[in-house]
């Protein structure tokens, strides 16, 4: 009787621990996946925002250039260096009149493409995400260039 109660007692604990571990593991995995998917969604959303902000800055620079005979233009554009704790890159793919800005979050491999419509041509560049400078190159190509100086 005592032995059987002992076995039952041990088995009871083992089963309890097993089920608890299983539930907790499920909870952690589900929570982890949820956080991961939310992070990706937020990164995508924020890349779009940063991309549109940069497109707006490029279009602003374009308006300044088109206003007249521009001698010098340097526009400092402020943007976060990291998005949801991930660094990102900005690639300018020139087109006429719509250029593509490809923003890629390096850790998550999430890429977002935003269009910028400018009359002034853009230089094909790739820079680290963060605060960038938009410069009007008057010496050679008469184009707007995004640099991360």
């Amino acid at each position: 009787m005592t032995d059987r109660r002992g076995v039952s007692f041990t088995l009871n604990y083992v089963l309890t621990l097993g089920i608890a571990a299983l539930l907790i593991t499920g909870l952690i995995v589900a929570a982890g996946d949820y956080v991961g998917s939310q992070r990706e969604s937020v990164v995508r959303s924020e890349l779009e925002v940063v991309g549109h902000q940069l497109a707006a800055a490029l279009e602003q620079a374009d308006r300044l250039v088109r206003a007249g005979d521009t001698e010098e233009l340097r526009l400092n554009h402020t943007a976060p260096a990291e998005i949801a704790q991930s660094t990102y890159t900005i690639e300018v793919d020139p087109g006429s009149p719509e250029s593509d800005l490809h923003l890629n979050a390096t850790e998550l491999d999430v890429t977002v493409t935003v269009e910028a419509e400018t009359t002034t041509s853009l230089a094909a560049t790739a820079v680290e995400g963060g605060s960038v400078t938009i410069e009007y190159n008057t010496t050679t190509a008469n184009e707007l260039e995004v640099t991360d100086d």
């Binding site: 992070r39 924020e46 925002v49 940063v50 902000q53």
Partner: peptide, 20 residues
């Protein structure tokens, strides 16, 4: 952190660059 990043992105979305 993710929620904070989402709020921050909404914040910078409403910013304007008045200089130009």
């Amino acid at each position: 952190v993710v929620v904070n990043a989402a709020i921050y992105s909404e914040n910078i979305a409403s910013r304007q660059d008045p200089s130009g």
